[in-house]
Amino acid sequence: MLILGIESSCDETGVALVDAAAQGVPRLRGAALHSQVAMHEQYGGVVPELASRDHIRRILPLTERALAEAGAALHDVQAVAYTRGPGLAGALLVGAGVACALAAALEVPVVGMHHLEGHLLSPFLSADPPEFPFVALLVSGGHTQLMRVDGVGRYTLLGETIDDAAGEAFDKSAKLLGLGYPGGPALARLAEQGDPEAFALPRPLLHSGDLDFSFAGLKTAVLTQVRKLGDALPLRRADLAAATQAAIVDVLVHKALAALRTTGLRRLVVAGGVGANQRLRAQLGQAAQRIGARVHYPELHLCTDNGAMIALAAALRWQAGLWPDDGRSYRFDVRPRWPLQELGHAVT
């Protein structure tokens, strides 16, 4: 089955084609992606209305590019998947509308997918795919969660952020440091030049005894240091960036290892945009090796939002017999707020 996946939850427009046989790992055939970073940069963050309008302009040309890369024609598509949520309502509606219109025109099934499930399952497209069961550390935008994953659609929440997520901590700290948008990658690049031990920043909930996260206090601590430094900030900016990154990574590593101990599992999947952070990858790899665990990541180009993860998640659900119906009503809605643990065994 050739599945066309459309992702439009925020500021990336992604389209991809995944080939799924009844058994075996689905294969990525073609993909195209457009990032809106340059458009939003002048505003210092995502402007939802501009994001929606740009998705409208990009989806069909990107679909043509993905089809060309796959060596396929539109009539070869046997199903269409789109991101139903969570995300920006207007942006989600663009992808949902296009997906359902395409599916209706082709008379093929259409299915709405969960954005975070796409991230969670994206390592199955990597050269080193995981096996069930595993612990998943989801660090994507406003989401930081630890999940036990026993199979497709079988997700148990172990812990989550009670305020700011790791991605938000990166972005907000970067803004305090006067870095550009998007802040997280800019802070990580600057941190390479600094001393991670130059400032004693807090590691919130590090020893809380549970698997929840909290990064709001870290942001406040960064603000305090910025104010203390005053005019000296430019000279210490790299050190403060390095210390901030170190604090975030230390918490993520500590909690991920605690989740492995709690579940008794020895396989960890890290997915989402923050999963591309090189310090996180290095420290998790070293820590996992010490306890005899393995860490799996999506390929770097699949860490950001993309259509491949949406098509893949739909393919894996199809293989597992978890599509809710024949997908031919072509009705659609979106769910801007949609906890992953509500997903269950079927998309409704």
Rank of each mutant, 00 (worst) to 15 (best):
M1F: 02
I3A: 07
I3N: 01
S8K: 07
S9T: 15
C10S: 09
D11W: 14
E12Q: 07
G14T: 10
G14R: 13
V15L: 11
V15A: 08
A16H: 13
A16R: 15
L17N: 07
V18E: 00
A21F: 01
P26S: 04
P26W: 11
R27W: 06
G30N: 14
A31W: 05
S35H: 11
Q36S: 14
Q42V: 14
Q42W: 12
V47S: 08
E49S: 14
E49Y: 11
L50I: 11
A51T: 15
R58V: 05
R58C: 10
L60P: 12
P61L: 12
P61F: 09
L62A: 08
L62M: 08
L67P: 10
A73D: 15
H75Y: 00
V77D: 13
V77C: 13
V80T: 03
R84Q: 15
G90Q: 15
L92A: 00
V94R: 14
V94A: 12
A96E: 09
V98K: 10
C100W: 04
C100L: 09
A104K: 12
V108M: 04
V111P: 08
G112Y: 01
H114V: 13
H114N: 15
L125A: 06
S126R: 07
P130H: 11
A136P: 00
T144S: 11
Q145M: 07
V149T: 02
G153C: 04
T156Y: 02
L158W: 06
L158A: 02
G159E: 05
E160M: 12
D163I: 03
D163E: 04
E168N: 12
A169P: 11
A169T: 00
F170T: 01
S173R: 05
S173I: 02
G178N: 14
Y181S: 11
G183H: 10
G184N: 00
E192G: 11
Q193F: 04
G194N: 06
D195W: 04
P202K: 02
L205I: 07
L205G: 01
S214W: 00
F215T: 01
A216D: 13
A216T: 14
G217L: 08
L218E: 05
V222E: 10
V222C: 00
V226P: 12
K228A: 11
L233G: 06
L233H: 05
R236H: 15
L240D: 11
A242K: 15
T244M: 14
A246G: 03
V253W: 08
K255Q: 05
L260C: 00
T262S: 09
L265H: 01
R266S: 07
R267L: 02
V269M: 10
V270L: 00
A271E: 06
G272R: 05
V274D: 09
A276D: 09
L280M: 09
L280D: 11
A282L: 10
L284W: 02
Q286M: 03
A287L: 04
A287Y: 09
A288Q: 03
Y297E: 05
P298M: 13
P298R: 10
N306D: 14
G307N: 03
A311N: 04
A311C: 00
A314Y: 02
A314K: 01
R317W: 06
A320H: 13
A320T: 04
G321E: 09
P324G: 01
G327W: 00
R328T: 03
S329I: 02
R331L: 12
V334Y: 08
R337S: 14
W338R: 13
W338I: 13
P339A: 12
L340K: 08
E342V: 03
G344K: 14
